[in-house]
Each structure stands twice: as structure tokens, then as C-alpha cells.
Amino acid sequence: MDTVRGAKSVTRTGPIIVVLLAMLVVWYAAAIGMNAPWQTTLNTRAGLADVPFTDFALQTWAQDRPVLPAPHQVLGEIWNATVALELTSRRSLAYHGWITLSSTLLGFVLGTTLGVALAVFIVHNEAANRSLMPWIIASQTIPILAIAPMVVVGLGSVGITGTVPRALISMYLSFFPVVVGMVKGLRSPESIQLDLMHTYDASPWQTFWKLRWPAAMPMLFASMKVGIAISLVGAVVSELSNAAGGGLGVRLLTGSYNGQTIQIWAALFIAAALAAILVMIVGAAERMVNARMGARPA
């Protein structure tokens, strides 16, 4: 049985690895092509003619401010900006990553709590359902991220600065998927299941904890995955409006002002890795809860 499962995971990861390798090859090739014009200019200036192609390729992969940095340059920058630096340094990506992560997490926790609470209220109150739900759904179509700088500056003007305003943006963003998902999840029990609880004369409280809440778990985790990803986006974007505050968004911004492409890519990679790790943590929590609830492994 174990060998079968092992074989299966190989056939599953095999294609992914091949596609990733292909992307890597394309990236290196693109780096040559996109950095070539500038490299040619440099070489002409230095009086170098007829540089062999392999040398030329290596040159394009080692520029200071390439149009497209090669993957190993980005990884090198990440290494230099994390492990090789003091954590408190203003140039440390770990320092900026921590700023982003802390507002992401704070916002996510607040947003999820608020979202679940509101969903419970909506499911149990018809007036709340009818008056709130249309607005919640409609407000999802609004580019809320556009308000981010507004909120940061507005709160800053009344003396609220630092993590909290940014976390509020993240909260606002992660709150929507959680409300919508949880309302769906809490309503997912079928009418015969509700009728069964009714025949037991179960209190609303019992119906909630023994039927609605467990039934809503799959939706909760699905929306939490969306919520934490968008929470990170909110944190990064809200950092753009205050360059002094730090964070991965600020690294993107200063990188773009100074033409430091390698720095931009490094910050981008860290943000992507953070998003991936956070989503994976939610996924792991989901599997743990599923296992405790006796659900079949998917």
C-alpha cells in the first residue's frame, strides 16, 4: 500500500518538477535576451569585440542592474539580505519581511474573527441577512485596496501609526471571503439534517455546535486560505504609502525608484514564499481538523 502511494506521489510531482525546470530554462534564456542590449553597449564601451557566446551569456547573468536578473542573482540577494545581515539592519529582508508578516497575521486574525462572528449573526437573523449580505457581496466587487493609502494616512493623522493601520487593511480584505464562505458553510446542512435536530428538540445552541459548525469547517478553511493570501497583499500594498515604515512593499517601492531590479525580485520572492508558507500552514491546520473529525483524506 505504501509503495503504491509513493509511486503516486512521484507521478504527481514529476510533471511539476519538469514544468518548473522548463520555466527556469526559459528564465535564463530570457535573461540573456533582455539584458543583451545593455551588455552589448557595455562591451562596446570597454572595446571588447567578438565576445564568445558563453562568456556573453555569463556577463548578462551578472549585471548590476539587469532588466531581468537571473534566478541565482535573486537567490544570492536573498541570502545576502537575510542570513548575511544583522536582523535589525534596515537592509535586512528578514526585518522587512517581519514587518509585513506581523501586520498580515494581525489583520488575518482580526478579519477571520470578525468574519465568523458576522456570519453567525447573519445565519441566525433574517433582517441582518437581508440587509447586510447584498452589501457584503457588492463590496467585494469594489477595488478596496485603493483605499489602503487613504486609511494609513487618515489614521496616521489622528496618531495611529505602525502595524495597526496596515493590519486594518489586511483585516478588511480577509474579512470578506470569510463572511461569504462561512455563511455558505453554516447554511450547508441539508433540511433533513436540520429536521433531525428538530425532532430531538435541540436548542439553537446545540444545533449550531453539533451540526452547523462542523458542517461549515470545509468552507472555513477554504476561505481562510483565500483570506490569508489576500491579507498579505493588503499588508504589502498598505506599506506603499509610508516609505519610512518598512516592509516588503517599501522594498519594492525603493527598488523601483533606484532601479535596483535584483532587490525588487528578492522582495517579491520573499513575499511569494511568505504567502506560500502561510497558505500551507492553513492547509496543514485543515488536514489536522479533518483528521480529528474523521473525514477521509482527500
Binding site: 493570501a229 504589502v236 500594498v237 516588503l248 519594492l252 523601483s256 522582495a267 517579491l268 511569494a272
Partner: peptide
């Protein structure tokens, strides 16, 4: 799931 918006710069 990634913050693709970061490629803006």
C-alpha cells in the same frame, strides 16, 4: 495565491 501585484514595479 501569490501577491502577483508585486510585479508592478
Amino acid at each position: 495565491a501569490l501577491p502577483i501585484i508585486g510585479i508592478a514595479p
